[in-house]
Design a protein around this nucleic acid. Structure first.
Lengths: 301, 301
DNA sequence: GTCACATCTGAAAGATATTTTCAACCTCGT
DNA sequence: ACGAGGTTGAAAATATCTTTCAGATGTGAC
């Protein structure tokens, strides 16, 4: 008799509230109490045990189980799992208005969410806007370069160092210049077959343009990584890699968001070079691992 | 020491896979089996009882419960509920696509897409796994610190410099130490009211732990930014900020992906501090803009 | 190589939660 | 008012989860 139900209801996923409404008329009074509680606060009920839900609804465990059965689940345990899923669902819908700017009085959790979102956005934009032809050309030049000089000041300096560090790791001769004067002095040494890379968000940082110009004049292959491909720096660049310009706010200056974009470009460049020089890059990478492993205090086990 | 976990893990909702990766190294063999099963097939595991999951992973109930605990849940029952939620989640979201590893022969366009995707993933994981309570505490300490010393070597060194650069910009006294010896020598100067920040992905970089330990002993407030919250570095850290451990590949070493995660954490820390010190931070930021504007060659016209 | 030590592991006991049973209790038609 | 049919919850039965503990396994010291 009761068994009819078993065939009728496959474990309903989302439309639980609807199911409750449909089935409510056919329920007994105390079962309705349970059903309402469940439909009204899935998240809350998911946290309760049978006994807990029975108490909360002023009924008994048996009734709770019966209700779960009526709703199409083998037992309360399964209803509870479904409830947890439902709760997670509506949880995700309630995003903290991530698109808004970061405000001075944002709670710390919002800051984290917004920053992460912004950076993800920046990455997507950068990937979409990156000219793979230019990138390919830059990779080709860097892979076969006798030496690679990198120029960057301020925040871009760190990106340059990052790139240099990684290129060194795979056995290339790369150097990130931080001092503009020394950069120029060194640029004079460059010639055809060498590569010079300038990193500047604004595209018009004199301290970075100058050494690139010198390198360009001396016949080196020059690459510019900039957010303003139309800026002065591009004049002296054989290849221009464009970083995206994320919207900035008072608390989050451009330097900060441009960094993410620059790092992605730099990583792409690096991976490209590593692919091209795989024969030498792979063992070099492995070796640098090996060397580092011994620097770590031998943690137990 | 193990007790560190108790405070560290609030039942994580979505970032379970990330958490598994973070904690996996500190797990015993059979626990890893369970963790992998759970991370690999949340939906499937949600349908299993303790006994079922134990059988499926070829381990015992006890081990399953232990794993659940390690992941931050009171017991298996709760892990199972979370799993159900997760399953419902990914049911709706459906897989993106570019999950594959970067291969040696990938065309350059694929490299860009995969890298961008990976980094986005890393950001999401980091944001989800970041303990906002710890972050809040770290922000509070940094905001009122007399001085802030930052330790990092290798790739983490750049992150440290980035943080120092930004904190300086808003008028705080921050310094990133790159030389381990000098770092220790300087750490001796610290005392209560000062803040020391150690950045290490592995959580066991001796060169970074040592200065932090000294700072800790001298009474400074210590903060660790690490991918291994259970690592030795946490011993001497008042607050631990966890970075996510992205899956790595041969061409993309951990150092590379960890950087993204570290930078996000550092940015969150910075923004938090900027909020707290808005009165002084805002004008300081504006001033540094002003100063920079004049450094750009007015080559345009 | 071997011993002492610490850690890991699973079987089984113990505790909870869920399901079933069953008798008391309504409700309604007569 | 009375009984048939259905509803309900207390308590027993079962399943599930948690804890304990002793054996297994690995690790470092000598």
């Amino acid at each position: 008799m009761k068994e009819i139900f078993s065939s009728d209801s496959p474990p309903a996923p989302a439309a639980l509230a609807a199911k409750v409404r449909t089935l409510a008329p056919s329920m007994t009074r105390s079962m309705q109490l349970v059903a309402e509680a469940v439909a009204g606060d899935p998240a809350g009920c998911a946290a309760l045990t049978v006994t807990g839900l029975a108490e909360r609804t002023g009924t008994s465990e048996a009734t709770v189980v019966r209700t779960a059965r009526l709703l199409g689940y083998p037992g309360y345990r399964d209803l509870r799992l479904a409830l947890a899923g439902l709760a997670a669902h509506q949880e995700s819908g309630r995003a903290p208005a991530v698109t808004a700017d970061i405000a001075v009085d944002d709670p710390i959790a919002d800051v984290v969410a917004k920053l992460a979102y912004d950076e993800q956005q920046t990455l997507a934009d950068t990937a979409a806007g990156l000219d793979t032809v230019q990138l390919g050309a830059a990779v080709a030049a860097a892979s076969t370069a006798r030496r690679i000089d990198i120029y960057g000041v301020g925040a871009s300096s760190l990106v340059g160092q990052d790139l240099a560090q990684k290129l060194l790791r795979i056995g290339l001769i790369a150097h990130a210049h931080m001092d503009p004067h020394l950069a120029v002095t060194n640029a004079v040494q460059l010639r055809s077959g060498d590569v010079a890379i300038a990193i500047t968000h604004s595209g018009s940082t004199g301290d970075v343009i100058e050494p690139l110009r010198v390198a360009f004049d001396r016949g080196a292959t020059t690459i510019a990584i900039t957010g303003r491909p139309d800026g002065p720096v591009s004049q002296y660049a054989d290849h221009v890699l464009t970083t995206s310009t994320a919207r900035e706010s008072e608390l989050r200056p451009a330097a900060m968001s441009s960094r993410t974009s620059q790092l992605l470009v730099v990583d792409c460049l690096f991976i490209g070079v590593a692919q091209r020089t795989y024969e030498t890059a792979a063992p070099a990478l492995a070796a640098s691992y090996e060397a580092l492993a011994h620097r770590h205090t031998p943690r137990t086990r």
